[in-house]
Amino acid sequence: MRRPRLGPLVGRSLARARAVTLAVAAVLAGFQVMLVIIASALQTARSFGLLSSLMPMGVQQAFGPSVLMLASFTGVAVFGYFHPVVVLAVAFLGAFVATEPAGEVEWGLFDVELARPVPRRAVITRSLVVSLGVTAAVAGVMVAATFAGLALLAPAGAAWPRLPRVLSLAAHLVALSWVFAAAGLLAAAIARRRGAAFGGVAVIVVCLDLLNVVADAWEKAAPLRPWLPFHYFPGFDVAAGTAPVARDLGVLVALTAALAGLAHWRFEKRDL
């Protein structure tokens, strides 16, 4: 008698997630290359000094002195790791892939999969592994695209971003997206429709992002900051090397683990 295996479940799930993952990876890789092109153009035109002087004081106050990173070749080249649209795209990807179990309830696929000797925890673990894996893979593709773009397009003498700094940015991006992947998993452990699970999480992601912007810019909302996952990815500070990386990643990974644990517990109890 065979032991239940995770491999076939992961393989099937990866096959389902392949198209959307490849599409997001291609767009974000292209975006990284485009930023290198922009940075190269600004460097060639010697415009970074001008950019720095044009930076409004309000922006510097809201985002801290690290925002001046944007007025450098390195800053522009790595901006793609914490650009709000990129962060949301990777978070949405993680959440979407993680909501697969709700889709399987909706389409009745668990009626054949879980009628076999497959433990319920296996399908939640599978979706967790796949959602964490695809977001990490997309970030990996982004890093590769950044350095490929630099190698091919950066002008001579430009100060390339250092690999550990880029990896730290990518790690923050991945860890933040994992939180929303785990939130998607929890939603999928409760919902009967994938659209409802993903839609709910997507709205929460956008609201939390907006709240984070408000909390950063408005002193009275500052006490909210520690409760917002986006607070633990201070992009400019990470790019400048001034962020508490271990604390941020620790909080994000712990939050992911807690949400994933809740998803396992909830899914174990539900009717399918």
């Binding site: 008698m1 491999g7 076939p8 389409w107 696929l109 054949v112």
Partner: peptide
Amino acid sequence: PIYPELTGYGYLAYLASLGA
């Protein structure tokens, strides 16, 4: 329930891989 993207062979092989 169906896996729209799977062939008949793929469907049987996938479900066989989950069986005891």
